[in-house]
């Protein structure tokens, strides 16, 4: 057991624990708390896997942004302290069974696939000799610049140095997502604007 696997185990366990607790917990704010645990642990997993930018983004956007928003919404919409809307036990049992079924499916697909062979096929199809990752983020330090340039339309991780040719990046999706985000935020602001409450 080395440091990586140790921390991986720790954070993976915390992520799963948080997720289960989110499901089990009935109080909204506690759910939010457990969600933080889960998402934060996921961010830590990202750091572990050398996706540091992604981890930071996860922390900033999910934990710092989305969840604060969620809790805000909880506070705005709760009609009493510690809002608690119970679900009928039957439904919980149903959901649990379905969840287990889904888990079974995921696990079975995970075990059922010949990862090694698939990867070799992929490598062969991409014309690579078996080198797994041409961009070795671990040794190259960070992914920040690579991601940034990919979003700008360059792919330095795809062997631009060898071929002298630039691969297409993610400029268009990036633009689309930006515009989408803008539209969504305007829409959300419009939806959530203060309105006179209808007397019902």
């Amino acid at each position: 057991m080395n440091g990586d696997s140790l921390f991986f185990t720790l954070f993976a366990f915390m992520a799963c624990l948080g997720a289960v607790a989110v499901v089990v917990s009935q109080r909204m704010v506690r759910m939010a708390f457990w969600l933080i645990i889960s998402l934060g642990s996921t961010a830590a997993l990202f750091f572990l896997i050398d996706a540091d930018f992604l981890g930071a983004a996860q922390l900033l956007i999910y934990v710092g942004g989305t969840l604060v928003l969620l809790v805000f919404a909880v506070m705005l919409t709760s009609s009493g302290p510690y809002l608690n809307i119970e679900t009928s036990p039957g439904e919980i049992v149903m959901a649990a069974m379905l969840g287990l079924l889904f888990l079974f499916m995921v696990v079975s697909s995970q075990t059922g696939i010949d990862w090694n062979g698939t990867n070799q096929q992929m490598a062969a199809a991409n014309g690579m000799t078996g080198e797994i990752s041409t961009f070795d983020s671990g040794s190259e330090g960070n992914t920040l610049r690579t991601i940034g340039m990919s979003l700008l339309g360059l792919r330095p991780d795809r062997g631009a140095a060898e071929t002298g040719q630039l691969h297409t990046g993610y400029l268009l999706p990036f633009e689309i997502v930006s515009v989408h985000l803008l539209v969504v935020l305007i829409g959300a602001a419009y939806l959530a604007r203060a309105k006179r409450r209808r007397d019902t």
């Binding site: 992604l54 999910y62 942004g65 919404a73 919409t77 992914t143 991601i147 959300a188």
Partner: peptide
């Protein structure tokens, strides 16, 4: 990583809209 970056961003957008709807 880039895909998940997009997923995170879109999840944030979705959360904003969903919360607005919830409100």
């Amino acid at each position: 990583q880039i895909y998940s970056l997009f997923v995170i961003v879109l999840a944030a957008a979705e959360a904003a809209v969903a919360l607005a709807i919830a409100l």
